[in-house]
Design a protein around this nucleic acid. Structure first.
Lengths: 130, 130
DNA sequence: TTCCTTGCAAATCGTTTGCATAATG
DNA sequence: CATTATGCAAACGATTTGCAAGGAA
């Protein structure tokens, strides 16, 4: 399967690259529609799936029932606020070591990992104190 | 909301407690039906959701689009075989420290984490070598 | 008797897919 | 020209939910 260029896909990547909040397919759709009013949700899904498959983006399933997408494919963890749903990046020094440590304890081949931290973000903590 | 006793819920818990492979709602349904032929999928889902909400079990979203349930609520990680889909437990010594380390690097309140390792299990690695 | 739980079926909702057409190389 | 990508709408599949009836406290 040889990829052909597509303006829609470019636009999706371009949009994703500007966001650090790990948008859902629907959010991508809403925004890309500003440039491509006729783009369909199906196209957005198809491209997000394709990009995730070839490793240009990462699909996150944090547990809220909706897929989120991350333009940053470097190894890092995520924090999910159980109150507002916000997802933020968490770059931890031991991220790399986690896989190594797991590999030592596991009889098989480990390629990667996804770590999600859950709790309340700064904003939500502050709000509840007021 | 005060819980009332229910034979169906007992049976669901009882079944889950015997399994270490993190079954899906459907698998739970299939098995509990042996004791309760009339139980409905809805009831299974309702109870699994309830049990997860009160913390008696854990809901796992490993990324295959289906929810898995774990009777073991102690802090541990999971390995997901991307070939056969199997999910196994991974008890790592540093599991506890992960949250602490993350907490130090994050401005908010972290309550827990879920870590999924992806790769190929022993079985699938062997098969591909044959 | 109160109110939680169930079974059933319909509804929900995020995601995928089939198809005819348009765009790319 | 061959093949991939698109828009549209229908299909899918896991999970949830409304409702009337059953069961626990």
């Amino acid at each position: 399967m040889i990829l052909k260029h597509s303006k829609q896909r470019d636009s999706i990547k371009e949009f994703l690259s500007t966001r650090k909040d790990h948008p859902t397919a629907d959010v991508v759709y809403m925004n890309v529609r500003k440039s491509f009013p006729n783009i369909s949700l199906g196209t957005v899904y198809r491209n997000l799936t394709l990009l995730a498959d070839i490793g240009e983006i990462t699909r996150l399933r944090v547990g809220d029932g909706v897929d989120h997408f991350d333009f940053d494919t470097s190894p890092h963890c995520h924090f999910v606020c159980t109150e507002c749903g916000n997802i933020s990046d968490l770059y931890l020094s031991f991220t790399e070591q986690i896989v190594e440590a797991a590999q030592e304890n596991f009889d098989g081949e480990i390629n990667g990992h996804k770590t999600y931290f859950y709790g309340r973000c700064r904003n939500c903590v502050c709000k509840s104190i007021e």
